[in-house]
Write a protein that binds this DNA or RNA. Structure first.
Lengths: 209, 209
DNA sequence: GTCTATAGCCTGATAGAC
DNA sequence: GTCTATCAGGCTATAGAC
């Protein structure tokens, strides 16, 4: 409090979290030792424990910081027009790009594996990730409904279906490390296909008459 | 070879695999010690190591046995008729029932977590699980195409979309332990909604004329 | 705050009696 | 094949010098 830490070290806590993140995400929780984190962060174990009282607290702190950064950037500014196909395709592209990023894939693996032992972790992940995406898409579908551009009986269910179509075999293969990350062209193709099916299946009563 | 093992012990290897399966599936790989497996199986650690040379080999052996039993039962006998909606709904129900079973959820968590360190495990899982389901649904969609009941341009993509719609928010919440397992009624609702959207979005040129 | 050194525990795996 | 007893090593976390 009284004396600020040395000016050169820009928050050693963040430095540790960053190193811990790299290791946890690439190796998993159990396979990552506090020794290796300390070495990767360039500090001693004692220093590490001065900042984070336990391995689990460090892990949770790291996960929270990652989520905040990722989600803040990825869910805010998207202008969606009145055309259902173009709008949903745009939503789909961004959702897929986020879903298929190396960090997101690793984080998902990690959270899933540890959610058994850390229920709060799973809940925080769900609320800050999938739940928010779902709300956003639900709101957009409701908007399209009101404009008469779509007729979706249950917008929340529809949003869930639409996002599910995107999180498909490709996502599974990437999660398992069986396929390379999709290119922008791949993503565009998938997003458009999902938007096409969703729009065709939820067209308002008179498509063109 | 010469002398068969004592008649009372009906394959001690299977007994060990069963105990290991329970523990691995409920706690994860790293959190399950060989001591606890030996205790749960009612044998000593030395006996355990006589049957499986290492923890990793025991793990892989257990996973393979589980998959074989699960998939053989769950993918074989399903009569699908010519009505796209009813047929797809039936496929969806069975897919969801399998996907949401406690064992499948636990196995998925486990495979995902360990696939980084054991790439072969992930590949075996994908081939024996998702890949086969996908092939089955693709074949059914092609059949419906030929009968003129649907017009799906890319059957493999369509199958992927259909299955993705089912593997949605509910699956995620169950994976994270945030929601109770769905009832048969929940499953039926989801399966029918997915079938409805898929049929409506892939109707042949003249729906009713 | 930061380091070196170490405590205390639990792990996977083995040696030897029977 | 099966057990009891134990090894050697890695882990998290801490104590004490500076």
């Amino acid at each position: 409090m009284a004396a600020k830490s040395s000016k050169a070290s820009i928050s050693k806590g963040s430095q540790i979290r960053a190193a811990a993140g790299r290791l946890f995400l690439s190796q998993g929780y159990a396979a990552t030792s506090m020794d290796s984190i300390a070495a990767a962060a360039g500090v001693s174990k004692a220093t590490l424990y001065a900042h984070f009282r336990s391995k689990q607290l460090l892990f949770e702190s790291m996960v929270q910081e990652r989520f905040r950064a990722e989600m803040e950037e990825n869910l805010k500014p998207l202008q969606l027009g009145d055309d259902p196909f173009e709008g949903l395709a745009a939503v789909g592209r961004r959702f897929l790009a986020m879903l298929m990023s190396p960090d997101a894939l690793a984080a998902f693996r990690l959270v899933l594996a540890e959610s058994v032992r850390l229920p709060e972790l799973g809940e925080a992940f769900y609320r800050s990730g999938p739940a928010r995406t779902l709300e956003m898409v639900t709101a957009y579908i409701e908007y399209l409904n009101e404009r008469g551009r779509l007729k979706v009986e249950d917008p929340a269910l529809g949003a869930d279906q639409f996002l599910g179509m995107l999180k498909n075999k490709g996502h599974m293969k990437c999660l398992l490390g069986l396929a390379p990350l999709p290119s922008a062209a791949d993503i565009d193709l998938l997003a458009r296909a999902a938007a096409r099916l969703f729009v065709a299946g939820n067209a308002p009563a008179r498509p063109k008459l």
